[in-house]
Design a protein around this nucleic acid. Structure first.
Lengths: 342, 342
DNA sequence: CCGATGGCTGTTAGCGGTAACATAACCCAT
DNA sequence: ATGGGTTATGTTACCGCTAACAGCCATCGG
């Protein structure tokens, strides 16, 4: 028995509906809607009218399958609650704006397994390219990316080996530079406060570079304190208090990000501690938030917008010549602010 | 380190490749990979092995077209640089976690035209549902959503007419409640600072509710100041300074969001102004950031996480019975903090 | 007046999967 | 043996669209 042909009034429309409504073939409708090939003005007119009247929305799934072309770019980042990744996203969107490409975001929460799953999921939509934060991935993730046959750009970091292209800064060098500036300013009892997430490789590399520079100057960290979760601003306060109580002679606090740095700054100001006289402070990232604080925290711009832009450019193929495997190192600038002695 | 098996790089793998490699039909491979139907253990084993060895990643485009099923949920929000939407997203992701559904985010930058374009783009991927921030859309946007034949949930706001379902709070009421609390605390010369984006309807509604309550008490705004763009914290400082200079007898400042409120708070503390004695302050949203400030800003929680969760529940069809058109009003709680006299 | 040319539209054959049905092999009770 | 029921696998026909090519008609130079 054949099923009764259910004429669903809300059946989703297809090209055929538009084609019937406008009296031309599906192919012509397709051409009109994509602005492809030659279509006479009168026909185009008629088709557009019909499509609008019906409220037709093309089915990209079918289109993508037929054309083997997908206008999506997968963007995989560890977190959205950080303010740094949204800014990278802004750079990406800006640059992708009129390329017909569209970013699709996946979040990993700093978990390599989650990242692997997200990459798999993304790739199964056959995007035109992938932008992935960081250089550290599971073996399987790297393999999938390498096999995908699309441009891959790893962003934020360049201290390591990229699957394909990479755009970022050297966090080791950033840590080193900050240490050198701090030492040059005369601080000697230097402590570190930062995230303890084992998978925040970039914070780890900054600390490595930082300690390396300290050693070179015959110094070592006077103290260190780690946190995870919670309000970063509050954690910054708390960690600062902890360190200052535990190691009262500390004269500088290096924070792994601006948010906890800001917390530390507010704490010091609250307590009436002389900043940067008695204690110097520095963070990392150059977040906009700092502009509103009572004093400008020393920090280092991570070139987030620029990273997003450059990565998107590579995906969009806007760069001349080179086909892949580019590594673009951007150079962050140290902003001494008002929390390092001069 | 062993490299993964390098397959012919010019062709992406299909079911057929796996089927040939494991000696069964494509259909059986499909069944194995989706855990559908009965497949003998030995066959399953063999297929999985082959798929893994080849590095096969299924093509969801083809799958979606064939099955008429897409495991995506479109989420359309005005901005990512706000911290409130990332939190809503968290709620959505949490709830969607094990439903097989995956959120895909689109950003409108508070532009109705952009929103229309993003909705069109999203719908053309035929998602299983859509979550859209706000109730105000272009005529065309509403029509598209209504026609799509999928569950639509408008979030954040319930003061207006929903296309289908809605989850949110009443911003008018929120504004009213805050005004009542402020008046009850004895403040009389009340000013407002907020965004001037013409499309931030929720901020607008809060202000409307706020002024309504003032009027009911025989009061009116003593002053008002608007901003757009830039560092919200800094703008908060600046606007506060402007208002206090222009209208020195102001005794309360109501901010349209916590970030500018925090800026105002920092400004007042800087200037040694007695808060909440001489001047009271309040913001809106209950952002985590506030936890780290020297004093707790009065605010009102916008139920962001809960909104995300509930919206996702509706899409996932986890709610019993009802088919659509639900409107869920959540009730924000006023957190008086330390910046309103008691 | 013919074939060539170019503008416009239609036809055909998939894209890579999956739903639905068909088939084969094996089991058991009748 | 026979029929009916399982279980495991294969076959067929699309899903909605687009690439590639085929056709048609008017125009045009020789």
């Amino acid at each position: 028995m054949t099923k009764p042909p259910v004429i669903d009034p809300r059946r989703t429309l297809t090209l055929r509906d538009v084609s019937e409504a406008s009296g031309v073939s599906e192919m012509t409708v397709s051409r009109v809607l994509r602005n492809r090939g030659d279509v006479s003005d009168s026909t185009r007119e008629r088709v557009l009218e019909a499509a609008r009247a019906l409220g037709y929305v093309p089915n990209k799934i079918a289109g993508a399958l037929a054309s083997q072309r997908v206008n999506l770019v997968g963007v995989i980042i560890p977190s959205l609650s950080n303010m740094v990744f949204p800014e990278v996203l802004t750079g990406i969107s800006d640059m992708l704006e009129d390329t017909g490409l569209q970013p699709v975001v996946g979040v990993t929460n700093y978990s390599p397994e989650r990242e692997e799953a997200v990459i798999y999921e993304m790739l199964s939509w056959r995007p035109s390219g992938m932008i992935v934060a960081g250089l550290e991935h599971t073996e399987a993730s790297r393999a999938m990316l390498a096999q995908a046959g699309i441009p891959i750009v790893e962003i934020m970091d360049i201290d390591g080996e990229a699957v394909d292209s990479a755009v970022g800064i050297s966090h080791r060098r950033a840590g080193r530079q900050m240490a050198e500036a701090i030492i040059a300013a005369g601080y000697r009892r230097i402590a570190f406060c930062g995230t303890m997430m084992p998978y925040d490789h970039r914070a780890r590399k900054r600390l490595e570079g930082f300690e390396e520079a300290l050693r070179k100057a015959g110094l070592e960290l006077a103290d260190r304190e780690f946190y995870s979760g919670g309000s970063a601003l509050l954690k910054g306060r708390e960690m600062t208090e902890t360190v200052l109580k535990r190691t009262p002679d500390v004269d500088f606090l290096y924070y792994s990000n601006d948010m906890i740095g800001a917390g530390g700054l507010l704490y010091c100001l609250d307590k009436g501690i002389d900043v940067p006289g008695k204690i110097g402070l520095a963070g990392f990232n150059g977040v906009e938030l700092l502009d509103g604080l009572p004093r400008r925290l020393a920090t280092m711009d991570a070139c987030r917008l620029e990273i997003g832009r450059r990565a998107a450019e590579i995906i969009a193929g806007k760069h001349e010549g080179v086909i892949g495997g580019e590594v673009i190192e951007l150079t962050p600038t140290l902003q001494p602010g008002d929390t390092i002695r001069r």
